[in-house]
């Protein structure tokens, strides 16, 4: 049995039904969720810069 992600606020999210029995979701509003996503991308950009001066693009 595999359930798939739902889309909420334009992002993929767990189906809330999957977090009922063992561990539950907390209160987290849309702005806080957006903030996490934004921070993640910032962090990933930062990580690239730690390893080389630049990331090259794929061939045409």
């Amino acid at each position: 049995m595999v359930r798939h992600a739902i889309i909420k606020y334009g992002h993929f999210m767990v189906d809330p039904d999957d977090m009922q029995d063992v561990i539950r979701q907390q209160e987290l509003n849309e702005e806080e969720i957006e903030r996490i996503v934004k921070y993640r991308w910032m962090y990933l950009d930062w990580m690239h810069k730690r390893f080389a001066d630049k990331v090259v693009k794929p061939p045409e």
Partner: peptide
């Protein structure tokens, strides 16, 4: 690019765990 940059983080979060019978998230 994103996935390579997340190579230190992304593959093992506790909430990845699932109980197969009912697909509940299990840390």
């Amino acid at each position: 690019e994103g996935d390579w940059a997340s190579r230190h983080d992304r593959y093992a979060l506790p909430l990845h765990g699932r109980r197969r019978s009912d697909w509940q998230v299990v840390p």
